[in-house]
Design a protein around this nucleic acid. Sequence first.
DNA 1: CTGAATCCATCGGGATACTG
DNA 2: CAGTATCCCGATGGATTCAG
Lengths: 114, 114
Amino acid sequence: MPLAELAACPVGDVFRRLGDKWSMLLVILLGTRPHRYNDLHRSIEGISQRMLTRTLRALEADGLVRRTVFPTVPPSVEYSLTPLGRSLLAPLSALADWAVEHEQDIAAARTATA
Amino acid sequence: MPLAELAACPVGDVFRRLGDKWSMLLVILLGTRPHRYNDLHRSIEGISQRMLTRTLRALEADGLVRRTVFPTVPPSVEYSLTPLGRSLLAPLSALADWAVEHEQDIAAARTATA
DNA sequence: CTGAATCCATCGGGATACTG
DNA sequence: CAGTATCCCGATGGATTCAG
């Protein structure tokens, strides 16, 4: 795999897209099961309504998340991963596993520097 | 793999750390071979001295990058990946491969939305 | 319940100039 | 060569309020 060539390419875009505060968290969470709006709002703990909506809309525009409205009373909206979004779960999990394996290494480096 | 539990954990930290504009680019670039300062500055095309230095320092504090100073005249500084940094290349490549495979999917979703 | 709208603080990040 | 020091701007993101 030509890493040097990949660097300038879409890899950076993907990281910038998912590198914001909540995107990757939402993808992982929606990877477990579909969620409703307030369901997500309660699950995430700390996200504002504004950022939840904005992040969901961005992921929807990227084709990673599907938004399904059920015309009930009161209205109910379900968010789920698209096939593209689900295909992202595998490489995302690889990085998640790395993070878990090495979190104390990073913490150690930080305290050593501090 | 317990995805739901991982979500709240260090995964977010990793993404935020590498999600800035240049970090992941530097890791991939340093994964190919060690580089000197101006070497990186020329290779990256668009990065300012300020951000190059700041990003390198941050990666160094995270224990991902090693900075080696050779006391020559004029001074020469080499940046390379630590073992921890190299261990990150594998999951990073997985995500890079995903980005390359699906870049047209994302582009298609974007134009469909726009 | 599912948002939209507005206001405002913080921060990332670029341009430029200067230094050992 | 390898940085540091300032200045400055736009984007990110939180709090709050309003609405269908």
